[in-house]
């Protein structure tokens, strides 16, 4: 009897410690992640007087957009570079979704010779260091007279490579999740395979494809090293912000405004597609 009475408290105690430890770990890591982000944003929105007060306030009193205004006007290249970044990102999305999407569909639906070698190549190309392609590609495009053009086509073509691989991976898992029988039934009812794809599969895959597009956008928007190598007078926002922020040691208002401005789209888009990104990192395999 005494044993029976003793057992539950022990179990409860264990469960309790377990849960407490879980929440402590969660809270610890969440704080470690969020505190720096919090400071980046409050610094960016603080008045100049507050940014250079000591110690910095934990909760700023005066919110202002002055720092962003300062950042956006410090270099005349910045405003045009925003549009250029969007252009490059959209071009990359178009390349990745059309070419990568086709291959992803093929990977998901067919069994064919050389499939494994192809999968391996896709992974290998993804892991290949960016500089080792960007430098020679810049040289090749210099010879063609297409280096550092107002619309940096070379950059978009370079981003296309990595993102095709990523899109193959993502779209293959999307198409795998759509029952092939739906397509087969549509084909039995008289649609061609192409028709079945466009009328049945594509609409079902649309949300996943949109997520893939957004993920590509985030990648292209964020990328610095290749953008630095492949542009000079026509930089993307990431490239010009990088030079601005790296040259502004000690100018907390400028560094934080540049960092926060770059961060907004990435954060908003990530929130929209968080479910898909977690799935992707959670080891969805093709």
């Amino acid at each position: 009897m005494s044993e029976l009475r003793l057992a539950p408290p022990v179990a409860d105690w264990r469960r309790f410690t377990g849960l407490t430890l879980t929440y402590l770990a969660v809270a610890g890591l969440a704080l470690f992640i969020l505190v720096p982000v919090y400071f980046l944003f409050i610094l960016a929105f603080m008045s100049r007087a507050e940014v250079y007060s000591w110690p910095l306030p934990l909760f700023p009193k005066h919110f202002t957009l002055d720092n962003f205004h300062f950042f956006l006007t410090i270099n005349p290249k910045i405003i045009p570079s925003i549009w250029r970044s969007i252009e490059v990102a959209i071009t990359t999305i178009l390349i990745a979704l059309s070419i990568g999407g086709l291959a992803g569909y093929s990977f998901a639906r067919f069994r064919f010779r050389g499939k494994n070698a192809l999968k391996l190549s896709v992974l290998f190309v993804r892991m290949y260091p960016g500089v080792a392609v960007a430098i020679p590609m810049a040289v090749l495009f210099m010879r063609l007279g297409l280096y550092d053009t107002p619309f940096p086509i070379a950059l978009a073509l370079n981003y296309g490579v990595g993102n095709i691989g990523l899109t193959i991976w993502i779209t293959a898992s999307i198409f795998l999740g759509i029952n092939e029988e739906l397509e087969e039934q549509a084909m039995v009812l008289g649609l061609s395979r192409m028709g079945a794809f466009f009328r049945i599969t594509l609409p079902l895959a649309a949300p996943g494809l949109a997520a893939a597009a957004i993920y590509t956008f985030i990648g292209a928007w964020n990328e610095v090293v290749i953008a630095t190598l492949m542009t000079q007078f026509n930089p993307t926002l990431a490239a010009v912000t990088y030079h601005t922020v790296a040259a502004a040691a000690g100018s907390l208002h400028l560094q934080s405004a540049g960092g926060a401005f770059m961060a907004f789209p990435a954060l908003v888009f990530t929130f929209i597609i968080k479910r898909y990104i977690i799935q992707m990192w959670g080891g969805v395999r093709i």
Binding site: F39, L56, I218, W221, G259, A260, L267, T270, K274
Partner: peptide, 29 residues
């Protein structure tokens, strides 16, 4: 929590640099 854990992975490298440059400054955060 998983969304929070995603933040550092998807933040642009410049934002990441700006966070720690403003952090490690002598009168930084």
């Amino acid at each position: 929590f998983l969304f929070v854990a995603l933040i550092p992975m998807v933040l642009p490298e410049i934002s990441y640099g700006a966070i720690w440059a403003t952090g490690y400054a002598q009168h930084g955060w």
